[in-house]
Write a protein that binds this DNA or RNA. Structure first.
Lengths: 340, 340
DNA sequence: TGGACGTGTGGAAGCGCTTCCATCCGGTCT
DNA sequence: AGACCGGATGGAAGCGCTTCCACACGTCCA
């Protein structure tokens, strides 16, 4: 790992004519160092090209100065869904403010959360941010049990009271979307829902059904034009096709994510339906929605904000492990474009 | 970083009734351990839930068991260009075989390579894989100078003889693409090129020009219908628009990446040109090319293979630092679809 | 039967850093 | 002038692990 002649703090101290203790204090910007000593050390550091050995430092301080971002999704989704791009970008930016390194932990297909959990327990990181959490991964409970500081982007479906999290109010957002379709006069409204094992999928479905119920369009739970996707474009297309097959007279469609909505638009086009005239469509997320044809009316899910808030919650935990952070819940807003 | 009561190797050894040295050997699967001792240690590890402290291990072994992937691009490109997704997925898979952790190092906008270089020099990782390297980052030279084992995905533009790399033959690929357009009968062929400060941009341009020259369509270097983009969809659209404005009679277009080609198709549609009848288009990469309208004829750039080959080159270097690996150069192939 | 050899084991030395604690020093207060 | 104080400093312990080395103990062969 180190180049052969990597200088150590000892050599810096010797060159600067101070003890290793003082050199360490100078390097770490401690106050209890005279200007004279500090300058000597700084000069020595420069002339030797000294860089502290992170393993040694970490061993002594019991900190690693790095934070894991855990994404229990296959890599291809992470690198194709703009939601993750936004999220990781924001997390990275906030962590960089404090010189913390981001370590991306992806679930690899076919493996349980064992490997990830082992990594987190192994003391490789000071804390974790969990992004796309599913019911079955039990991450909130595991992490709370571990005592590892953590924060969730999106309310955890289990153990939400034991960890910090930031989310948008997905129930309210879905209600907004559905109400818009109702106002437009749609009466046979379908829903391409997110995964049933994620809070975001459940909440958007719940908000949608609540709005329908208020409008007197009750339906039996579990019945009606609802098909689940997994937040990929392909799943949105397939779900929409199933919906059209079962309910050919659909006049409105609420899709639980813009990426799925993009797939749905393709299915609608393939079925010869015009949007919004035959079927009005509302998406969710406002990620790439303006690049669809037609541009998508959607609910804003401020992924960057959310990630930043979650990261700051984590930072607060790192600063003061005793602090019990309040969850953050942001209000949704609707953006009207051409599709509804 | 550690939970308060994290068990140490000492406690494992005590519980197993052996010395710490033996416990260490057992944990690391050394051969020089009796079955009796090994089983006792394994039992102790299980009952205590022992996980080795990576900092301590790394300090003693001078290894970190992690590898950096360096991408000198802004995060938003990394998370939107499918090329990176493929690449990172493949690297991650190969590293996982050896239980190496991937650490993603993105250039943050507005900062020089200082931070990245500091990290690499700091001994945080055992080696590095560099993905989208530009002339000005001088990464090949820096890394070779550092003595840090590394491998490049895509031939480095400077210092290619000092580091390991894997690439496809981009000159040959561009030639293939251009020849196809020529065979089709195109005579006024434009090119949306990649960045001029990357080997891949230069090579694809060179192959294109070589094919034109062979067909007797020489042109002054630097002149003619060539516009550069930066491998984003938006830049492809803009470059194509510039091309159409300057050369309204274009009948063929070779675009140096599929993502840019997608943008180019949009520009062509906006200009009312039909593809392939008015303008035949060939892309490069075969990433999402089949999802374009019309589906894109393109040159296959096997991003996953490339990344895997580069990663294996790195692993070989890690196993035997003295080994001087041969560069890998894969042949390109053409995929015909509707656009040309 | 004695030496050579191989195998499993433990003691102990470090890896490079931080930080507690004792010490020292110059200045201030009484 | 002496006690006192606070800031700067160095010595040394220790973070948890690996690994060199020495040693004990059989085994095997001459």
């Amino acid at each position: 790992m180190d180049a052969p002649g990597t200088p150590t703090l000892d050599e810096v101290a010797r060159l600067a004519g101070v003890s290793r203790a003082t050199a360490s204090r100078a390097v770490n910007g401690s106050s209890r160092v005279s200007d004279r000593a500090r300058e000597a050390v700084e000069a020595a550091v420069r002339s030797l090209g000294y860089v502290a050995n992170p393993a040694a430092r970490s061993l002594a301080t019991r900190r690693t100065d790095s934070v894991a971002v855990v994404v229990p999704e296959p890599d291809d989704r992470v690198f194709s869904d703009p939601f993750f791009g936004r999220t990781l970008t924001a997390v990275n930016r906030v962590l960089a403010e404090r010189d913390l390194q981001l370590v991306l932990l992806l679930a690899r297909p076919g493996e349980e959360e064992g490997r990830t959990l082992r990594y987190l327990r192994g003391g490789h990181v000071d804390g974790a941010i969990v992004v796309s959490h599913h019911r079955s991964d039990h991450l909130a409970e595991h992490l709370a049990g571990l005592g590892l500081p953590c924060a969730f982007v999106g309310r955890p479906i289990l153990g939400a009271d034991r960890v910090a999290w930031a989310d948008t109010d997905n129930v309210a957002g879905a209600r907004l979307a559905t109400e818009l379709l109702l106002e437009r006069g749609c009466r046979r409204i379908g829903h391409v829902a997110g995964p049933g094992d994620m809070a975001v999928g459940q909440d958007r479905l719940a908000g949608h059904l609540a709005a329908l119920a208020e409008a007197g369009l009750d339906r039996d739970p579990g019945a009606g034009p609802v098909e689940h996707g997994d937040f990929t474009e392909a799943s949105g297309e397939a779900a929409c096709a199933r919906l059209l097959a079962a309910y050919p007279d659909l006049d409105g469609l609420f899709v639980a994510s813009d990426l799925m909505a993009r797939g749905a638009l393709r299915a609608l086009a393939a079925a010869g339906r015009s949007v919004p005239d035959d079927v009005a469509v509302v998406g969710y997320d406002d990620l790439g929605a303006d690049h669809c044809t037609p541009p998508l009316t959607t609910v804003v899910n401020p992924a960057g904000d959310l990630a930043e808030r979650a990261t700051r919650l984590l930072l607060a935990r790192l600063d003061d492990p005793a602090a019990v952070p309040e969850p953050v819940l942001l209000p949704p807003t609707l953006v009207r474009r051409a599709s509804a």
